[in-house]
């Protein structure tokens, strides 16, 4: 039987969800029997491949590149999972949305106020969006896996349920934050 193609993506987030994914420890070895990791921050592949079965997307959508990237991912993925609070709610990344002119205030704070030398806005990086968004505000999301981060057990449960062709039930199992 062909292995299920799984990808994991890291947008604006702290990578904590990926750490939690890795925290599945020995269970990852069991998973490896069933899945093939076709794209991930821990896999050295540059472009997001076609025909991916399941994609875990960590982090909020905060800049133009991520927006573009997420749309490509959506087109090439059968089942897209919003992975962790940033992807589900915007979480800490979206706290900047509370500021009036959030992009300017964030840049000012990070690259001018808190910097001792060569105070300047970055120029060679993707432009920040006016607001940071949870995934479902930009593309269709098939499954939500909240948590900051979601626990390794929960990730394992969800992934195994999906692999077995069931819809995981989160009632009582997850926790925001």
């Amino acid at each position: 039987m062909a292995k299920v193609k799984v990808a994991t993506v890291w947008l604006s987030g702290c990578s904590g969800c990926h750490m939690s994914f890795l925290d599945q420890d020995e269970k990852i070895i069991e998973l490896a029997e069933k899945i093939e990791l076709v794209y991930s921050p821990i896999v050295d592949i540059k472009d997001f491949p076609e025909n991916v079965d399941i994609t875990f997307v960590e982090g909020a959508v905060a800049n133009e590149e991520q927006l573009h990237q997420l749309k490509t991912i959506r087109e090439r993925t059968k089942l897209l999972i919003a992975f962790g609070d940033c992807a589900v709610t915007g979480n800490v990344v979206a706290l900047r949305n509370m500021f009036q002119d959030s992009v300017k205030e964030v840049l000012e704070r990070a690259y001018v106020e808190n910097v001792d030398h060569s105070k300047q806005y970055p120029t060679q990086v993707p432009k920040l969006l006016e607001n940071a968004h949870p995934l479902h505000e930009v593309v269709k999301v098939d499954f939500y896996l909240p948590g900051c981060p979601p626990s390794a057990e929960l990730i394992n449960y969800v992934l195994n349920e999906i692999l077995d062709g069931r819809k995981p039930s989160l009632e009582g199992r997850f926790k925001f934050g």
């Binding site: 609070d85 709610t89 979480n91 706290l95 479902h136 900051c148 009632e171 926790k175 925001f176 934050g177």
Partner: peptide
């Protein structure tokens, strides 16, 4: 409501209710 940076994280009644009723995201914009 950003649970991860909230003082009530883990003892919040709203958070508990979301867990209990399986409110895993908000379909209305925040």
């Amino acid at each position: 409501h950003t649970c991860s940076v909230c003082v009530a994280n883990g003892s919040c009644e709203l958070q508990e209710l979301a867990t209990r009723f399986g409110v895993d995201h908000t379909s209305v914009s925040r």
